[in-house]
Measured scan of single mutants.
Amino acid sequence: VRQEELAAARAALHDLMTGKRVATVQKDGRRVEFTATSVSDLKKYIAELEVQTGM
């Protein structure tokens, strides 16, 4: 499950970095929206997932 969450989070980051205004991911069973202003929060979430998956 964590691998899927990590892939979704990375895709969301890619979307935001390429101009999409809002990206949505499932985080702990709930839907979370990230915007360009919350990229740093999304990067932290990705880092947490990488630690949890041993990457």
Rank of each mutant, 00 (worst) to 15 (best):
21 R>W: 06
48 E>K: 06
8 A>Y: 09
14 H>L: 11
47 A>G: 09
12 A>S: 03
23 A>E: 03
54 G>T: 06
51 V>E: 14
33 E>A: 05
42 L>Y: 00
13 L>N: 00
33 E>H: 10
12 A>H: 01
31 R>W: 15
45 Y>T: 02
2 R>M: 12
45 Y>N: 01
13 L>M: 06
4 E>I: 13
32 V>S: 03
23 A>V: 15
17 M>N: 05
1 V>C: 12
14 H>G: 05
23 A>Q: 03
11 A>W: 07
29 G>W: 01
25 V>G: 03
50 E>H: 05
32 V>C: 06
55 M>I: 07
6 L>P: 00
2 R>V: 13
19 G>A: 03
46 I>R: 00
2 R>S: 10
19 G>P: 01
2 R>C: 11
45 Y>H: 05
32 V>I: 12
38 S>G: 12
50 E>V: 06
34 F>I: 04
2 R>Q: 14
47 A>W: 12
9 A>V: 04
55 M>E: 14
13 L>A: 02
9 A>M: 09
53 T>V: 15
36 A>W: 15
4 E>K: 14
11 A>G: 09
32 V>Y: 07
8 A>M: 14
13 L>H: 03
2 R>E: 09
55 M>N: 13
51 V>C: 11
43 K>L: 11
34 F>R: 00
42 L>T: 00
9 A>K: 01
47 A>R: 12
41 D>H: 08
6 L>W: 04
14 H>V: 13
52 Q>G: 11
48 E>H: 11
25 V>H: 01
24 T>D: 04
18 T>D: 12
7 A>F: 12
50 E>Y: 07
11 A>N: 12
12 A>G: 04
51 V>D: 14
51 V>H: 07
29 G>L: 02
22 V>K: 09
37 T>L: 08
6 L>V: 05
21 R>K: 15
5 E>Y: 04
10 R>D: 02
50 E>T: 04
38 S>C: 10
42 L>E: 00
31 R>K: 14
26 Q>V: 15
2 R>K: 15
41 D>N: 07
31 R>Y: 14
29 G>A: 03
36 A>F: 11
17 M>R: 05
29 G>P: 00
25 V>D: 01
10 R>C: 13
52 Q>V: 14
39 V>M: 15
12 A>D: 01
31 R>F: 15
26 Q>C: 15
47 A>E: 13
9 A>Q: 01
30 R>Y: 11
3 Q>L: 10
31 R>L: 15
55 M>Y: 05
32 V>W: 08
47 A>Y: 09
49 L>D: 00
30 R>A: 11
43 K>H: 09
52 Q>I: 09
28 D>Q: 05
13 L>S: 00
19 G>M: 02
37 T>Q: 12
14 H>D: 09
13 L>P: 00
27 K>N: 04
35 T>E: 05
53 T>K: 07
32 V>D: 02
40 S>G: 15
43 K>S: 07
29 G>V: 01
15 D>E: 15
49 L>G: 01
47 A>L: 13
42 L>H: 00
45 Y>K: 02
32 V>F: 06
29 G>H: 04
18 T>R: 11
53 T>Y: 06
48 E>Y: 06
17 M>Q: 11
52 Q>H: 07
46 I>C: 01
21 R>C: 14
39 V>T: 06
35 T>A: 05
12 A>V: 03
4 E>A: 15
8 A>V: 10
16 L>D: 00
32 V>M: 10
24 T>Y: 15
4 E>H: 06
1 V>L: 08
50 E>W: 07
41 D>E: 12
43 K>Q: 10
19 G>D: 03
11 A>P: 00
33 E>F: 09
10 R>V: 12
52 Q>F: 12
45 Y>A: 02
24 T>P: 04
37 T>K: 09
34 F>M: 03
31 R>E: 14
20 K>M: 06
10 R>H: 10
1 V>S: 13
46 I>W: 02
10 R>F: 06
22 V>L: 07
37 T>A: 15
43 K>V: 14
1 V>T: 08
18 T>N: 10
41 D>A: 13
24 T>L: 07
3 Q>S: 12
19 G>Q: 03
39 V>G: 02
4 E>R: 08
23 A>M: 03
18 T>W: 07
40 S>D: 14
44 K>P: 01
27 K>F: 09
17 M>Y: 08
18 T>I: 10
39 V>H: 03
34 F>Y: 07
23 A>H: 03
52 Q>R: 10
41 D>V: 13
15 D>F: 06
47 A>S: 11
43 K>A: 11
28 D>T: 02
20 K>N: 07
7 A>C: 11
13 L>K: 01
35 T>Y: 12
22 V>C: 13
44 K>F: 08
8 A>E: 15
21 R>S: 15
10 R>T: 08
7 A>M: 13
51 V>K: 06
6 L>G: 01
20 K>A: 13
12 A>E: 02
12 A>M: 03
28 D>H: 04
45 Y>D: 01
12 A>P: 01
1 V>R: 14
17 M>T: 05
54 G>Y: 09
28 D>G: 09
5 E>D: 08
15 D>P: 00
31 R>D: 15
50 E>P: 00
30 R>P: 02
33 E>W: 08
10 R>S: 04
22 V>R: 07
42 L>G: 00
54 G>H: 12
48 E>R: 08
21 R>T: 15
38 S>H: 11
54 G>D: 09
29 G>T: 03
50 E>G: 05
3 Q>E: 13
53 T>H: 07
16 L>V: 03
48 E>A: 09
42 L>C: 00
19 G>S: 04
24 T>K: 06
1 V>G: 11
38 S>Y: 04
19 G>I: 02
49 L>K: 01
53 T>G: 12
20 K>P: 01
19 G>T: 04
36 A>R: 05
49 L>N: 01
47 A>V: 08
2 R>P: 06
9 A>E: 01
8 A>Q: 14
5 E>K: 08
39 V>R: 03
27 K>T: 06
25 V>T: 04
47 A>Q: 13
46 I>H: 00
28 D>F: 02
23 A>F: 03
26 Q>A: 06
42 L>R: 00
35 T>S: 09
37 T>S: 15
29 G>R: 02
5 E>T: 07
6 L>F: 03
8 A>R: 12
15 D>R: 07
32 V>T: 04
26 Q>W: 10
46 I>D: 01
27 K>I: 15
11 A>L: 13
52 Q>N: 04
41 D>R: 05
19 G>N: 05
46 I>K: 01
37 T>N: 15
13 L>W: 05
22 V>A: 06
8 A>H: 11
54 G>E: 10
15 D>V: 05
26 Q>P: 07
18 T>V: 09
34 F>S: 01
35 T>M: 06
5 E>S: 09
30 R>E: 07
52 Q>E: 14
11 A>H: 10
6 L>D: 01
38 S>R: 10
10 R>W: 11
36 A>S: 08
40 S>L: 14
8 A>F: 09
3 Q>M: 14
23 A>K: 03
39 V>Y: 06
55 M>S: 13
19 G>W: 02
17 M>L: 06
4 E>M: 05
49 L>Q: 02
6 L>N: 01
16 L>C: 03
13 L>E: 01
24 T>W: 10
1 V>A: 10
20 K>T: 11
16 L>R: 00
16 L>N: 00
22 V>E: 06
31 R>I: 15
34 F>G: 01
18 T>G: 07
7 A>E: 14
40 S>F: 08
55 M>F: 12
41 D>Y: 04
19 G>Y: 02
55 M>P: 12
36 A>I: 08
14 H>P: 00
3 Q>A: 14
41 D>C: 14
45 Y>P: 00
37 T>C: 09
17 M>E: 12
38 S>F: 06
21 R>P: 13
11 A>K: 14
34 F>Q: 02
17 M>C: 11
25 V>Y: 01
35 T>Q: 06
49 L>T: 02
48 E>I: 06
48 E>P: 00
41 D>L: 11
